[in-house]
Design a protein around this nucleic acid. Sequence first.
DNA 1: GTGGTCTAGACCACC
DNA 2: GTGGTCTAGACCACG
Lengths: 131, 131, 131, 131
Amino acid sequence: MFFHIDSSNGLPIYEQVVRQVKFAVAAGVLKPAEMVPSVREVARELALNPNTVARAYRELQAEGVLQPVRGTGLQVAADAAQRCRRQRRDLIQQRLGQVLREARQSRLDGDELRQLVEAELKSLEREEAKP
Amino acid sequence: MFFHIDSSNGLPIYEQVVRQVKFAVAAGVLKPAEMVPSVREVARELALNPNTVARAYRELQAEGVLQPVRGTGLQVAADAAQRCRRQRRDLIQQRLGQVLREARQSRLDGDELRQLVEAELKSLEREEAKP
Amino acid sequence: MFFHIDSSNGLPIYEQVVRQVKFAVAAGVLKPAEMVPSVREVARELALNPNTVARAYRELQAEGVLQPVRGTGLQVAADAAQRCRRQRRDLIQQRLGQVLREARQSRLDGDELRQLVEAELKSLEREEAKP
Amino acid sequence: MFFHIDSSNGLPIYEQVVRQVKFAVAAGVLKPAEMVPSVREVARELALNPNTVARAYRELQAEGVLQPVRGTGLQVAADAAQRCRRQRRDLIQQRLGQVLREARQSRLDGDELRQLVEAELKSLEREEAKP
DNA sequence: GTGGTCTAGACCACC
DNA sequence: GTGGTCTAGACCACG
């Protein structure tokens, strides 16, 4: 299974499931037309309430990432990959904008911000390099 | 008055008040030893329930930003300014880290991220220039 | 249930709840990862307003003694026991210091104080022995 | 003047005034039949609201420590000294009892408590020795 | 006038 | 079911 839940990092659990499915689709781990594991299976595997998983799948259907196959389950939609990639990018851009806006309000100037960003990127790259 | 409530952007009202007080202190708009407007005054001005404002003020006391003057009101603590500035900076750094981490997970590489940051900063600077 | 409220010995009710939870944790009656009784349950049992109990629980969260499990309730934090024991001890030491300081100001000398302490301890031990 | 106010150590200001008068009487700094400084004078000297000082004096009259002299002011009552000494001692005994009781509830045994008391007394004596 | 506590009851998101 | 937020209104101690 490609999910893992960080029970209480503040994000609702169903939202974590939604994001991880989208991420798996965007990254090609879940391919178009592939069947997604059943609500019960996911719930058992992650020790979640089935309602919670069902809600996540419901949202993914509403957004067109998953689509029902009668009597069988849910499959990844044909155009889901590009949709998810675009969503992901927009989300990041929007959140980045928010953070930077707040930062400006607190009197950090552009260069200080660039330095902070550089420092964080470097530290992330180090994290990814070894572990 | 230096507050304004954006009811509702998702953030609880009391939390918006907390942040705006901290910001005002960090920016020097509220100086140490200065009295903060009374619970009732803020409540009237912003059309809030006094309890909501009181809760915000209570949290600010718990964090040592405000301190009571018996029978008189609440005062900005002597060391509040530096405390608020540091908090603000830590908050931004942490949130920036989160966003960048998510961005990396979605396969954006460092250079794309730098470009995004640049674009956002430019757009913010334009916003601040004229409006 | 392990709470009881002494309405009213001057201490706010929410504070009494806070202390009793901390005490139960320090004494091992409430163990890490155990769920604490729900706000509504405590409120019903003690005939309090749920808001009052909620406030107590909120403070306990802020201090890291309790942590939320989404949609399920509140749980004793992993490191809460040691934290509560240390707090308790510090509190007692501080209050003891206060009383002794006042006693000195009122011209009681060290030996008189020792006698007083002995007398009180003996009387407490008698209380604990039988009833 | 023999008072000093520790504005916001938590104790109400009027109560601090009451205690300091009682202490001065118990210690013989204020002698029976001596006139006490007027409300206005104390208020000016300590930068307090006259209402606050008046309230303190009212309580001291109610307890028989001060008594009015028509058209002149307030004087220390004849039997005030012994009364204040006894009160002071009872107060300390009662508070000591409280602290020790709480300490026992938190599982500290008698010997640990005696050690704590010793340590605090030693530290107080050191404080008094030099400064 | 100030803040602090408490009650009552409504509505929300989450599981 | 859970906790969280908010409103409304009462009462208290303090200055």
